[in-house]
Structures are given as structure tokens and as C-alpha cells.
Design a binder for these strands. Structure first.
Lengths: 140, 140
DNA sequence: GGTACTGTAACTCATCTTGTTACAGAGGGC
DNA sequence: GCCCTCTGTAACAAGATGAGTTACAGTACC
């Protein structure tokens, strides 16, 4: 799979916002992430839809956290920017006349769901505040 | 991300092989998966490299399980066909002069590793024999 | 009104996946 | 030995997606 870097970039953005304590412009954030401001605005838009940040247009605007950094888990960040399921099923439906082809997707479903849940539960153990703490511990 | 369906197809292939008890040709398998035989051969090649199946060239050849279906976990299948890490880091390295940009990847690393481990551990709970059992319970 | 922002469309480029054709080589049956 | 049936793999096309970029409409503060 062509993995996207949106999740890692989103965590980066939120950590920046947590550290600043206020609002930052997409251009400033883009300078730290080393990308284009539009890329940041797209990420911020997804995070805003999920209620993790608040953005404001116009002069003096930008994005800021919508709640305390300790209350923003990486699970919420992941779900905000990677809405699709982790596993892709067959590109063309398998042969329904084959006993295996006709039932394999249903047979796999509970396992795939459990694996994705395990991933999300693990991500829920880390918050944006935790990330900020790890940064502070290394380079104050 | 363009999510790949290799994992689901590989599970399908192995379930077919487990059910047959012997060797199947890529053309036969392709009929159940509803794809091209070359796609199946690519999957079988990855599974063979991981020691999950044995393939044989020539007339009467094909692929068969290299060990009992109960000993093939979906974790091993996933690792065989999806060798890349689940999370992509920044496409361009973040700005090292920024306190956040310079350390965010290191700060994220333990969380990403734990999440990927949680996923793999969950997949280890299901074997190819389990899949075959789920199929049998629905359509005998 | 002017300036500083976001929101978003539109386009390009690169990469990945899948499907496909083609062909070399292996191996069993005659 | 000679077929015929297979795998292994290269090569290419088509489609999808991600990321980067430019452009511009709209909003909000001064």
C-alpha cells in the first residue's frame, strides 16, 4: 500500500500547536514540517472536522487546539486523517461459485476488525501532551 | 494510501490450498479469486519466500502449503506480503532547526512501533485453519 | 479599503497496485 | 527425445492516490 504521511504530519502539527499554546498560521507550520502551506491547511481542515483544532480565517487567524493536548489521543488523530479501512478487500469480487471465494470475505471480517481495533487502541495510549513531553525531555 | 489487497488475497489463496490438501495451479486459484494467474503467482512467490507454501514448476506443478494450516497465522501472512512499515514518515525531512521538527520523528517512534506490534499480535490470533473452519460452519 | 489569513479547486508529478501479454525454463508423460 | 503443462519473471498499460504547487475567492482585523 502507498502509505500516506498524513498521520505523522498531523501529529507534528498538533504538537506544534500544543507547544505554542495559541494559534499558528499554515505558513509557519509549513516551515517546521518542510512542506507547502496548502498541505498543512488540508491537514488542519481534517483535524477541524474531527473537532481537534479550531481554525480562524482572516488576518491574525490560523489554527489552535480545540481542547487540552492531554485530551487529544493519537487514535483520534489517526481517525481524523485516515478515515479509510486499513485492509482492502479483493479489487474484483471473488468467484461466488467457489466455496472459499464465496465466503472468504465474511470469514476474514472479524479478524480484520479486531486487528484494526488493536491498532487504534494502541494509538489511544499516547496523547499530544505525551509527544510534547518526549520532546522536552530530549531538547529543552 | 492506495491500500493493497495482497493480504486478503493471500489469505484467500492459503485457505484454498488448505481446503484442497494438495497442490493447486495458479490458474485454478485465479478462478476462485477472480484475477489473473500472474497476480496469483506473485502472491505465491512472496508466500514461498516466507516459507508458508512450496511451489513446483513444470507439468503437474503448482503451490501447496509448506506446513499445517493451523501453524500458519495471519500475522505471518501479513508480514509475507506487506513487508513495509505501516506508517510513512514525512516525505521531506522536517525542519531540524525547529524544536518540534527536529525531534518529532524520534518522539513518535515508540508509539508507531507499539501500534504496529498490536496489529501484528492481533493477526497472530487467527490461523488459516481458523478461516477454513469459519467457512465450513457457514457453507458445508 | 488594505492587509493577512483560510478554504478550496485545479493541475502536475511521482509512485504504487493491478491486470495483462510475453517468453524462458522446469519437469512429468509419452 | 519431444510435447505439454506448469512456474518465474520481465515489461508495459491503466487507474488511483499522495504530495506539491499555483491561483483565487472569501473572511476578518486594522
Amino acid at each position: 500500500m502507498t502509505r500516506s504521511s498524513r498521520f505523522v504530519v498531523a501529529a507534528h502539527v498538533l504538537t506544534l500547536l500544543a507547544r505554542s499554546g495559541g494559534a499558528l498560521t499554515s505558513e509557519y507550520i509549513a516551515g517546521s514540517v518542510n512542506t507547502n502551506p496548502v498541505v498543512i491547511r488540508r491537514i488542519l481542515a481534517a483535524l477541524a472536522r474531527a473537532g481537534l483544532v479550531v481554525t480562524q480565517e482572516g488576518a491574525g487567524g490560523g489554527g489552535r487546539l480545540a481542547k487540552p493536548a492531554a485530551e487529544i489521543t493519537l487514535r483520534a488523530v489517526y481517525e481524523a486523517v485516515e478515515p479509510d479501512s486499513l485492509f482492502a478487500l479483493h479489487p474484483r469480487d471473488p468467484n461466488p461459485l467457489c466455496p472459499v471465494g464465496g465466503g472468504i470475505q465474511v470469514a476474514l471480517e472479524p479478524t480484520l476488525r479486531a486487528a484494526e481495533t488493536a491498532l487504534l487502541d494502541s494509538l489511544a495510549d499516547t496523547s499530544v501532551a505525551d509527544l510534547l513531553g518526549r520532546l522536552g525531555a530530549e531538547s529543552s
